[in-house]
Design a protein around this nucleic acid. Sequence first.
RNA 1: GCGCCCCUAGCUCAGUUGGAUAGAGCACCGGACUUCGAAUCCGGUGGUCGCAGGUUCGAGCCCUGCGGGGCGCGCCA
Length: 625
Amino acid sequence: MPGPDRARAHSAPGRDPPPRHLGAARTENFCYSRRPEMAHPASLLADTVRKAVVDAFGPEHAGADPAVHRSAFADYQADVALRLARAVKRPPLEIAELLAQKVEVSGLCSEVRASRPGFVNFTLDRAFLERSVEALARDERAGVPRAERPETVVIDYSAPNVAKEMHVGHLRTTVIGDALARLLGFLGHRVIRQNHIGDWGTPFGMLIEHMLDIGVGATDELGLFQFTEFYQAARKKFDDDPAFADRSRKRVVLLQQGDAETLALWERLVEASRVYFRAVYDKLGVLLEDSDIRGESAYNADLPGIADELERRGIARVDDGALCVFLPEFTGRDNEPLPLIVRKRDGGYGYAATDLAALRYRVETLGATRVLYVVGAPQHQHLAMVFAVAKRAGWLPDSVRAEHVAFGSILDENRKMFRTRAGESVRLLALLDEAIERAERAIREKNPELPAEERAEVARQVGIGAIKYADLSTERIKDYVFDWSRMLAFEGNTGPYLQYAHARICSILRKANETGIALASDLLRGQVPEGVRVELGEPAERALAIELLDFAAAVDAVGVALQPHRLCSYLYELANTFTAFYEACPVLRADNPALRDSRLVLAAATRRVLATGLGVLGIAAPARM
RNA sequence: GCGCCCCUAGCUCAGUUGGAUAGAGCACCGGACUUCGAAUCCGGUGGUCGCAGGUUCGAGCCCUGCGGGGCGCGCCA
């Protein structure tokens, strides 16, 4: 039952202060077309509230978070008064009232009112919204400003192993990393992708010997690509045949010594893998290229220096033959400090040394101000230790942020690790092909008129998009359940649903164009002629406008928190808001041409935001499906 | 044993630095197509937010303890 508090708290006549009605909007203050970059409503409101706080309570509160966000009781609300109450020793409502009076919102809001117990509610001005949506509709960036202070962001992701097939375990790191790379790049940061492939280590001894056994040329025909069989055959010989094992060990030594012939054989394996990686990345539609590859081997020459410096400066010490860094803040069994092993007892270097060298390279050579590791959650402690050691050694200064972008596992319907029936890891290429096949079947059934050639391409976009979206749309730290029928559903928060929403809008614009509406051909080319005006007379139109203008805030939030699922939620909400608009407001059959054009612009703006939003997630937005 | 992560409706998941009434989809029940793409839409049923304390004007969110699940914890990466 609805509680009485609600009425008392929010709308009791005479209890809340009267609303502050503002005069006619001076929209020229917010004429976006004159600005190099747009600012979205939430940030404009935050700025103006911040000023009002300083104005009312002094500069010592300049740092107070205005706490502006969307509201169920207005367009936006600010909660800063509630938080300020203690500091300024005044009742929250009084503070809210004062802020409502002081806040400078002419041209931005049509109404500002305080509400118990201490909220400030903002209603955006209609003309402001209309002009802003017009600007968004003709802005290639759909209203997203570039970062004021661009950073150099190094993103470490994907990292498959040479001479091994990629499997589901590589899906999340590759998809999440790609989305973050696109999104941060879109925000104007300098993004440097780093594919830290596993191209070094003792297994290469047996792999090279096996390659010699079956004929060097054979690896060129590994095709797409029987690395698993290749690897397993080598492994079996290593375990069963002492002579082969002996050769393998000697080969490792040759490799580490830089023997030219051995290196050439090794390079042959790496190149075969690069061909394979390209095929996977191409099918998956991610940005990674050969030039992004900087594997473990790239740091070989740095490892002795890393070890020496740590030992010389007393950060590391030899324990039981191995060079270790002990960090008091990390403990393991028996409460003993946990070692980070830099150099093994046999003189070889472990992956900790490589990670340290890579981090130093990224900071000192690449000039990173932010380093992201898109790596599974189980590695959290390892990375935390690497960061801690790097900090202590001065390789990771306070001016650089190193962040572990951790993610959970992919589970099957029984909540077990996602594997084949035989208990093997699922091949990534097979998984992608199945997604495409399933999408193809669905499209053929639901839209038989689509030409076969186009259908094949759309099936690829929908199938891959479904897999990516399923991965990106839940909070990444949690495990998620892999479910074909859910991710390929056209209902709910799925990739296909958003792609459908986009395709349907395209269809409206196409139809308008075919009907001979002049504006439509401009809109299809992404252009909005001068003079076309958006009118927001209906609540559904107004709601859509506000949602559209929130796009920048959604993208920005992901850039900070590195949580792509927030952008997914936003896009899903936008699609729903558009549908509500579309149900309530006839577009092609609007009452008059001006209203029809206004609604076409709203549709075009929605299309742009959907396509841009899906694009920064790495998901295609087909015009028909 | 120590540490990290997770626990929200029958299922799968949202819930923005603590803010006004905890929301979607699926499933189930009932509606809406001679009408812009019904692949879309609109209602309804359904929740002691794992449990118990604490901090706060206010806790799904923060702190402590407990329970359940997952994963790490010296020479693989």
